[in-house]
Simulated scan of single mutants.
Amino acid sequence: MTAWPPVPLRRTTVVTTMFELTRYDGRHRVRGSLYLSIGLSLLAAMVIWVYPSFEAEVDLEQLLAAYPEPILQVMGVQTMASLGGFLSFELYTFGWIILLGLYLAYATAGTIADDVDRRRMDVLLAMPISRRRLVGERFAAMAVPIVGANVLPPIVVYVGARLIDHPLAATDVLAVHLLSIPYLFACAGIGLLASVVFDRAAIAQRVALGVTFALFLSESLLTGTDAEPVGAIAPMRYYDPNAVLLEGSYDLVGAGVLVAMTVALLIAAQLWFRRRDIA
């Protein structure tokens, strides 16, 4: 006989299933994120290690003057006469804005498209989970490589700068990494939107790479021209390592814009995926 009154269902059953996809994807990204953080740390150590030789043997300002103006504009170079300016150019513009931005756009572009491409999406959609939540949880898992990439490098930069007698303020080193997180999420958002628009992972990843790099070039080349407002859609406009390391200026408004941009890209991806047919 059935007991009366019936035993109420426990809410913990629902809570334990929340973010299951995020935890699953996140666990599978931990090892790669660790390798990424170590690789970026080695890059940071190498840049800091070579700086004293450059400073002693090369006239850095004269070297900077030898670069064509378009190159300096694209790379956002202001000075290399200080370690902060050198790191902004050699490490953060190249390593964070370009390489990490492109990598995260590329990696995120496979989060949804890869399952569609490999005919695995039907299995996921058969679970008691909405399409909107599926996209959101998959995107949330990208926090693992984004945060992981910024764990070891700031320690290496701060300690390395002191070892070569060119100390940097700890708050500036921490800020340049913390402010990169909204930027990297925005780049990942570009990849997420490409991932739900295209069925084939390879196409989604190429589109994400192309769009992200095109935005970088447009922001760099349009600065100071009549078309400069067009560059407002580029995430790169709102993350400036030079301002942090050379001026100690933290653009919190820009970080807010990047957060809003990420949210907009996530919502757009969720709406698109909810309405599309899965072949």
Rank of each mutant, 00 (worst) to 15 (best):
G101D: 02
A161R: 09
L179E: 00
M261R: 03
L222E: 01
R200N: 09
A45Q: 07
D25I: 07
P6S: 06
L178F: 04
S88C: 12
D59W: 08
Y24L: 15
A264Q: 06
V30D: 00
V50C: 04
V156F: 12
T225D: 00
P229Q: 09
V123I: 13
T93W: 15
A188N: 00
L125R: 01
R119E: 13
D277K: 13
W272N: 05
Y158M: 05
A65F: 03
S88R: 01
P229I: 03
G191F: 06
F86W: 13
D199R: 11
A232L: 13
I48N: 01
A107Y: 08
G85K: 02
P235V: 03
F198H: 12
A268R: 02
L178P: 01
R275K: 15
H177L: 05
Y106E: 06
A107E: 14
S218E: 15
A126R: 09
P52L: 04
L125K: 04
G26D: 03
T225V: 00
D165Q: 12
L40P: 03
E61H: 10
R31Q: 10
R200G: 06
A255P: 05
A170Q: 05
F185T: 00
F216N: 09
P241L: 01
R23I: 12
L91C: 10
R120M: 11
Y238F: 14
A105V: 00
F89N: 13
F139R: 05
V144G: 01
T22F: 13
T111K: 08
R27M: 14
I112M: 10
I190F: 06
L246Y: 04
D25F: 15
S180I: 00
V159H: 11
L125C: 03
A186P: 01
S33D: 04
D59V: 01
A227Q: 10
R200Q: 13
D25R: 15
G160T: 02
L179I: 01
Q270L: 04
G248E: 06
M46T: 14
L34T: 08
V14G: 07
T212K: 08
L152Y: 03
G160K: 00
Y239I: 08
A105C: 07
Y92R: 13
Y92W: 15
V263S: 04
I97W: 05
P235D: 05
A260Q: 02
S220T: 05
P52N: 06
A109S: 12
V159N: 03
Q270Y: 01
F273A: 10
R27Q: 13
R132G: 15
T2G: 04
G26M: 10
P6E: 02
A255K: 00
G85E: 06
V74W: 05
A161G: 12
L245E: 08
F273D: 05
H28K: 12
E247G: 14
P167E: 08
A169P: 04
G189P: 01
L192M: 12
P235S: 10
V156Q: 03
S220M: 07
Y250F: 12
V58N: 13
T2R: 08
F94H: 07
F216G: 07
